[in-house]
Structures are given as structure tokens and as C-alpha cells.
Simulated scan of single mutants.
Amino acid sequence: MHAIPKLKNTDSNRFFLMAGPCAIEDRDMALRIAERIVELTERLRIPYIFKGSYRKANRTRLDSFTGIGDEKALRILQEVGETFGIPTVTDIHESGEAAMAAEYVDVLQIPAFLCRQTDLLVAAAQTGKAVNVKKGQFLSGSSMKFAVEKIRETNPDAHVILTDRGNSFGYGDLVVDFRNLPEMQSFGVPVVMDCTHSLQQPNQGSGVTGGKPRLIATIAKAAIAVGTDGLFIETHFNPAEAKSDGANMLPLDQLEALLTQLVRIKEALNEK
């Protein structure tokens, strides 16, 4: 497996990036996306973790795409890590999945709706892998200290990451409260801003989640400006054809320009 890069921000280093497709759709797609992002992040000197879900358990409709098979997708994630020498991250949904996924990836991610599930957090911590917990849409940043405590009490050496993905705003929208980022950083863990899921419009009448991808750059720039440690961005060659969450993904051909701008913002902040 691969070492997790130094993730906690300081005035002298840059933010890190978790990025990739929402779901692993096939081997070729995953490798092509990873290859492109690796090229960009190496050139811009941004620590990079490849993201891909081996299975999508939280779907609005029964006929929504959920995955290509757990083991098949996990083996693709493993191949991505081995091919490019980078760490990988994937979601887990039940405590029984933690040990299985830990055999293939470097970071286990806890979905936002499940961030209070004690058995799931404990199982993830017991694997010894880094654990990225997404803040529930129904929680404040300060409430996430309890998720951190559950993991650290289970495994004092656990590498914990917290990710904000917005808060529920009405029935079908989210809003980002940037106060949550420094609040969660006060727990001594690296904090990530999820720039794509925070722009979702969940539970639309069609049964397909909507989104506002035109605002991804806005969320990302604001997060860097307030000092977030990392960014989470789902991206695809053609979001319109993505089998999951295409409505709020960043087209891959727009990633270079965005990362370049973000590096400049970070450098400007460091100069001060």
C-alpha cells in the first residue's frame, strides 16, 4: 500500500487533493482519469489521493447504478494505486465492509449520512487505515469532534481526516458554512472541502440528484482562502455520461485551470 502524504496544512506547503470519478465504472476509465490527474498534480506539486467508490449504496431510486461488483471495482482501485504509486480512497457503508476494502485501498471514507454510526467508525479505525469522515449534512462542524474521538479511542494512532460537504438547506439544496472548516481543524486533524457534493441538489422529483457544477470553482477558491488543508473534487471526462453524480461533477478538462488558480491563491496567502 502507499504512504499517505503529509496532509496538515502549514504556511509553507500546498493543499492536497482527493479527486476522481464518483464511482468506478470500468478499468480503462479509472486508469485514464488517474493518469491525467497524476500528471497535473505532479507538475503543480499537489499531494494527490485517487478517489473512486467501489459501490454506491445511497441511491434515490432502486434502478440507479450502484457498481460493477465489489471485488472487481476494488481490484481496479488497487491497480490504480500500484500503477501510479499513489494512495487511494473509497467509501464503506457497513462495518463488515471495512476489513474487505482495507485490503485494496489506503483511506476508508465514511459517507456523510453515516458519520454517527459508531460500529462503522470503530471498524474503520480497527483496520489501521486512514479514515476520512464526511460531516453529516445535518451536523455542525463542532459536532464532528465526537467522530474523531470514537476513532482515536479505538485506535490512538489512527490518521483521521474530516470533510465538509455542506449542510441541508430546505428540502432540496445545500449551503456551505465556511466557519465549519477552522472549527474542525481545531481538533488537530486535516480538513477537506468537498467542492462537488456540497453543490448537490438532492432528492429531486425525478429521483436523480441535481447539482450546480458552475460553482465548483467558487467553493474551491473560498475554501483555499480560509485555509482548508485539502479539496475533494469528483471529475469525469464527460459528466453527462457518468453513471453516478454527473450533475455535480467537474469536467476533467477544466481541472488544470482550476488547480492552477488555486495554487496561485495559496501562494499569495503564504506570501502574507
Rank of each mutant, 00 (worst) to 15 (best):
A240I: 05
Q78W: 10
V189Y: 07
R14S: 11
L174A: 11
V263Q: 04
S186Y: 06
G207Y: 09
G227R: 13
N155W: 00
G52L: 07
F178T: 01
S53A: 12
N9S: 15
R45V: 09
N13M: 05
A98Q: 07
L269R: 09
E149M: 11
V107Y: 01
A147D: 12
A19Q: 13
Q201M: 15
E153H: 11
I49F: 08
I265H: 00
F138N: 15
D26M: 00
M29H: 14
S142G: 10
V89H: 04
S140C: 12
L114M: 15
S198M: 02
S206P: 14
Y48S: 10
S244N: 00
A112T: 07
N58A: 05
Y54D: 08
H2K: 08
M144G: 05
G211Q: 12
T60H: 05
I110R: 13
R116E: 10
N203G: 10
G67Q: 03
E103D: 13
V107I: 03
D28T: 15
A19T: 14
R59E: 02
F113Y: 12
R59K: 07
V192H: 07
A242Y: 10
P213H: 08
A73G: 15
S206A: 11
E103K: 15
A112R: 04
D70M: 11
P239D: 02
I151T: 08
Y48M: 01
G170E: 01
E82C: 04
G96M: 12
T209G: 05
A123D: 13
S142T: 13
G96N: 11
V89L: 14
A124G: 13
H93K: 13
A124L: 09
T235W: 03
G188I: 07
D245G: 06
S168N: 06
S186E: 03
A158T: 07
T66V: 12
L231S: 04
A3E: 09
R179P: 00
E35R: 15
V263G: 00
Q261G: 03
M100V: 14
G230R: 09
M193E: 05
T196V: 03
G166S: 09
A3S: 13
E149Y: 14
T10W: 15
T88W: 01
T154I: 08
I49N: 05
D106N: 10
L108P: 08
G67I: 03
E94C: 12
D28C: 11
E234S: 02
Q126V: 14
D173R: 07
L31A: 02
N238P: 04
E183C: 13
E103P: 13
K243P: 03
G128A: 06
T218E: 03
V192W: 12
R36V: 11
L215G: 02
L231M: 06
A57Y: 12
L231A: 01
